[in-house]
């Protein structure tokens, strides 16, 4: 439905703008959650419901929580908020404009397909098969990487906390 696309775009872009423009970092984090949810919506529209659900589960549910913990536990309420000076606006605006020009000109030139293939009906199962056959090695490597991160986090917490 085109209306759904419109709403999702509003959410995603609005969220993204909110991340950048919000004065309070915690607000930025929550705007980011909005952006994540918008992207998840795109996945659903494209027929990738598994990826969409995982996007919500992982990004909105875990990564965002991680951001929030990090922000809330490391700052004091009285932290100075980013200033808004004209120089800053100019600098950021200029960089954004440059990036936009680069992206748009290249986007225009690239031959994007205008018709998508119909979404595969059992794409969850297909993804699963892909992870365990052609992509099994990267899958296992990423698992080990995550395990290393987990153990590292535990060790760091232990060293600081002493007990437990």
């Amino acid at each position: 439905m085109p209306e759904a696309f419109g709403i999702l775009t509003l959410a995603t872009l609005g969220g993204a703008l909110g991340v950048v423009l919000a004065t309070d970092v915690v607000h930025s984090a929550y705007f980011l959650v909005l952006a994540f949810l918008g992207v998840a919506g795109y996945y659903f529209l494209l027929g990738g419901e598994f990826v969409g659900a995982v996007q919500i589960l992982i990004y909105a549910g875990a990564v965002a929580v991680l951001f929030l913990f990090a922000v809330m536990l490391t700052r004091r309420r009285a932290d100075p908020v980013w200033g808004r000076s004209p120089a800053r606006w100019l600098g950021v605006g200029g960089a954004a404009a440059l990036l936009a020009w680069l992206l748009l000109t290249h986007l225009e030139r690239h031959p994007w397909p205008t018709k998508l293939p119909p979404p595969a009906p059992h794409n969850t199962a297909l993804i699963g098969k892909a992870l365990f056959r052609p992509f099994v090695v990267p899958f296992e490597v990423v698992s080990v990487l995550l395990l290393a991160a987990l153990v590292g986090a535990l060790l760091l917490a232990r060293k600081e906390g002493g007990a437990s």
Partner: peptide, 15 residues
Amino acid sequence: IGLLWILAVSTVSVL
């Protein structure tokens, strides 16, 4: 993806 949807959406409540 019914079950996965429920789990995914429930985690948002932590926020």
